[in-house]
């Protein structure tokens, strides 16, 4: 019989941080784009592309860091297409995001099959190194939880803090919020609505690409077809449950990351984990129903603005 402390061990909490990383990265991207008023349900597809092109670049060059850059570039490009379609051509945000998802979820296994002969998985490539924090690694339990991890794990803290400072302490953040809350008034005040939105959408794609490459190069050192497995949608759940605020996104991301790590662990033991996988989605419904706290999206979200 397996006791509870065999499951709730140090490795589980280390896995929590690893599984929370892609959620927090993509959800932070979601916060930035949605605060500017543009919905991006294409996060899932952008993560998929990031995961694939990261591995592809590492496969060709042997350098995982170039893979990280490639993933961010590809994620940003996919987001740029979304931004162009939505902002320049006045499209419905959901429809455009859906189109991006379809293309990415088709293109990734297509390229995987063409290049590695299997739509299921790639070859194993050079992954990212594992980092440890010099002094903290000596601390018994905490040291084991906080390391060694892929560098992408350590980026999330910096990215969340920067996102929070930019959104709430700088004039750019104020402008983004203004554009997302009331685009017309923002435009009247001289804020370039379209340009702000382009930048925010592209940043969300870059972060989603980073989230994807964390899953591939930072985690398995290969690409597999089910790798993203709906985590782009869970990131949207994190964003909503986190009330479009970076620090709360970090906290909620850790909670859902824990659920993810636990379900992977239990799956290995043959326990049905479907209900555990439902947690992020049910929490989001509960938040929207007002059962757990309140969550309010930006007022002009999903609305196009034309000067």
């Amino acid at each position: 019989m397996i006791g509870i402390w065999d499951i709730l061990d140090v490795a589980l909490f280390a896995a929590m941080i690893r599984m929370a990383t892609p959620l927090v990265l993509a959800a932070t991207g979601g916060v930035i784009t949605e605060r500017s008023g543009v919905i991006n349900i294409g996060l899932e597809g952008m993560m998929m592309l990031g995961a694939l092109f990261g591995v592809l670049t590492s496969y060709w060059t042997g350098c995982p860091w170039l893979g990280v850059i490639a993933a961010m570039v590809v994620g940003g490009l996919a987001a740029a297409i979304h931004a162009l379609v939505v902002i320049r051509f006045n499209a419905n945000h959901i429809v455009s995001g859906l189109g991006i998802n379809f293309i990415a979820l088709g293109l990734a296994p297509f390229l995987s099959e063409v290049i590695w002969g299997s739509r299921g998985h790639s070859d194993i490539v050079t992954g990212l190194p594992r980092w440890e924090i010099p002094l903290i690694k000596e601390i018994p339990v905490i040291g084991e939880i906080l390391g060694p991890h892929s560098p992408t794990v350590f980026m999330i803290l910096a990215i969340v803090i920067i996102a929070n400072i930019v959104l709430f302490k700088t004039k750019w953040g104020l402008r983004i919020t203004a554009v997302g809350e009331f685009a017309k008034a923002a435009a009247t005040a001289g804020i370039p609505v379209q340009r702000t939105r382009y930048i925010c959408v592209i940043i969300s794609g870059i972060l989603a690409g980073l989230a994807g490459v964390h899953m591939s190069l930072g985690h398995l050192s290969m690409f597999t077809w089910g790798m993203i497995g709906g985590r782009g949608f869970i990131a949207l759940a994190v964003m909503i449950s986190g009330n479009w605020r970076p620090y709360r996104v970090l906290a909620i991301g850790m909670v859902f990351g824990f659920a993810d790590a636990l379900q992977i662990r239990l799956q290995g033991l043959g326990v049905p984990v479907h209900f555990m996988q439902m947690i992020p989605f049910l929490v989001t419904i509960a938040v929207l129903a007002g059962v757990m706290g309140r969550s309010r999206p930006p007022a002009d979200i999903g609305k196009n603005y034309e000067p």
Binding site: V85, A91, S96, G99, F102, G106, F110
Partner: peptide, 22 residues
Amino acid sequence: VPLDITVVIQGTIILFIAAQRM
């Protein structure tokens, strides 16, 4: 040619429907 090419085609169609203005 992997079957997934048809998903790419579907996605592109959806994207262009979204961008009717284009």
